[in-house]
Design a binder for these strands. Structure first.
Lengths: 177, 177, 177, 177
DNA sequence: ACAGTCGGGACAACCCGTTACT
DNA sequence: AGTAACGGGTTGTCCCGACTGT
């Protein structure tokens, strides 16, 4: 008996995300994914067309959420945008921890991948908000520090209760702004 | 005329570091390095024996410096170690920016590479110092935030004068502790 | 049109055996085999996974037959085992002439190949039977002479009718015991 | 202090013979030899020009002895030549055990090596003598059996006292003729 | 009969590393 | 010190025939 199309699709994405996060995008072969899921490589490519398509589909929700956040931030006045952005970023990172780990790992080369090229713009806008719309290098630098603090703490730090985690990250990030 | 051995060796390391940092360890082939330097791939392997050897040699100074910092921190009392560690980490990251970028990119898979296996321990000890020797998850998490802030700001943030950079990073990091 | 899977598999084994017997295991490259069969090297490796796998599959029937012979010899009393063993060995060698040629050629290094490591034990047991279960060096030496006579005559000697061949080898071998 | 040229030459040949016999001609790299002897690969090639030259020089004494034996056999009448040849072959094999092991291992491909191409003729003439100058396939086959018995017993059989060895081989071989 | 789905088989382009030789 | 040619092996991609349910 063959499993349903949707099931396989979901399963494929799930396994891909796990393996990508664990061994990196390049470090994971289509064969690895197919083997773990228990289907053929050809079948995998039937669903996704290419390896990059998998990545794109994997990252889509996170990018979408980032867009949403950016849209929401657009309506906030300059003197309050930083604080709201911090909260948004913390929530974003907490939700898409593995996606971000993956993105972080292959950031340098990800520029080549068409599906991810807009990532830069999104981040740029986020950084702008975190810096309170200021263009001063010092402020931009601090914005990067905020992002780094939140992202790396999620990726490498100790695992604790979600609410505690959120609270801690938020407190630290706000102290940075 | 053939260039001197030392020159080629240095040049090879330089180009390797640049390409590794730009496209990741796996994303860079020996052929890429050899081509850019202008020598044959075989010649490259004559000098380094294997791809991993290049990486090890590339990372050696940074690891050494980390060891030094750890040794130095060992003599500091618990209530002051965090501040000193922050300063040490900021200097370390500023000095070995590209090495750390590279390390960051392949962190998940780096565990397989023998030359980097001790990296984990070193980071663990550094995090301990940054957390003021505390074992409380909250403190460890904050330590990771400090590291993340400094590292990512260096890797992705705007480039500004070294002294200003150092000052800003230091100020931000201290506010986090 | 692509040929059937079983066909290619068989063809690959056939050509491999021929080339291995002709130029030795090391003396034959995967490319040689693939070229002669008319498929790509990658396709070849898709079927067999590694060069050693080919060898193992090639030698499997011969090893199996040797095991069978050994099992059969186990039930023969000491004073008659030598003669029966001679007959068995002659038939074995006649059936697996090329496999044995191949094995002979790479004997020194074959110890490294996992698939062949048990070969030594099998031969040891066969020699024991050929020597009439005696441990006296002279008898063991004579056993080796029998094996050598049969094997080399098959590998290098003139080709004559199978029945005549068998008769001659048998006669000579029995005279040696 | 550097060792004398003659010493190095001898040492090189010695080590080469040992390694060739142990891992085969192809299975031994120039680097292996140079490393074990403790000199550079370049130095090795300065002495011998090519890998094949080493082999040729290594095999020269054995081939020469074979020629001598052939010449000596030429003067023996047909009805006695077989017995004399047997004795000559046994002595030859005993003296050049390792050379023959080596030759046996790479026989199939050795035809390509110019220095060894005349080997075939020599063996052909030897077989003729062992067969008592008969052209009957049965006799030629028996000649091959004699050769095989002696060679393989030397290469793979138990090690016993030289005189005993010689006696045993001789006895067995004569029984075959 | 006819999409959508899936698997076996194949392959070009590379990969890292070694070898004999200069 | 340096290299061309090759070694075995992997990767992403693709073709095609065989299954589904409709």
């Amino acid at each position: 008996m063959t499993r349903s199309a949707a099931t396989l699709h979901t399963q494929l994405l799930e396994v891909s995300l796990r393996l990508f996060a664990a061994h990196g995008f390049r470090g994971t072969s289509l064969q690895d994914i197919a083997t773990e899921v228990g289907c053929s490589k050809a079948s995998l490519l039937y669903h996704f067309g290419s390896k990059e398509t998998i990545l794109a589909e994997l990252l889509a929700p996170a990018l979408e959420a980032a867009d949403e956040l950016n849209a929401q931030l657009a309506g906030i006045p300059d003197d309050r945008v930083a604080e709201v952005a911090v909260e948004g970023v913390v929530d974003l990172v907490l939700r898409f921890q593995r996606e971000i780990t993956l993105l972080l790992g292959d950031v340098p080369e990800s520029t080549m991948i068409p599906a991810l090229s807009p990532t830069g713009d999104r981040i740029e806008r986020l950084m702008g908000a975190l810096a309170g719309r200021s263009e001063r290098p010092q402020d931009r630098l601090r914005a990067w520090m905020v992002l780094g603090a939140v992202v790396l703490a999620c990726a490498g730090g100790p695992k604790l209760e979600p609410e505690q985690m959120r609270e801690q990250l938020l407190a630290g990030a706000l102290r940075l702004v």
